[in-house]
Amino acid sequence: MIAVLGLVIGVIVGVFVQPEVPNAVVPYLPIAVVAALDAVFGGVRAMLDGIFDDKVFVVSFLSNVVVAALIVFLGDQLGVGSQLSTGVVVVLGIRIFSNAAAIRRHVFRA
């Protein structure tokens, strides 16, 4: 419950405070957000499976974000940034879909 509240408060703060993002972070933000979403869906699935562990969630969340940003950074350095970020988004999207499917089976039994 507190976690959900954290998400809601984060969105509200982001909408109303409108903080300025440093330019260096701008290209990595979208990928990092998608990676974090993937971690969140994984966490929800684990919770429904009854195997949720907050330490695992924190580590997976942070490493997901860092790795995704790293891949995009590397892609930018290699000159294939857009392709690599597309690839990352596709992979993360597939994982989000499979996690969402598992959550759906838990919640709706279908």
Binding site: A3, V4, V21, V33, L37, L62
Partner: peptide, 30 residues
Amino acid sequence: ALWPPRVSRGQLVVALLLFALGLALAIQVR
């Protein structure tokens, strides 16, 4: 997990991470 809100260190850390996620999400969308 949803209803009786339990305040534990784990919950708070997860809430913090989700707060960051929500923030980034809103910033990015905007």
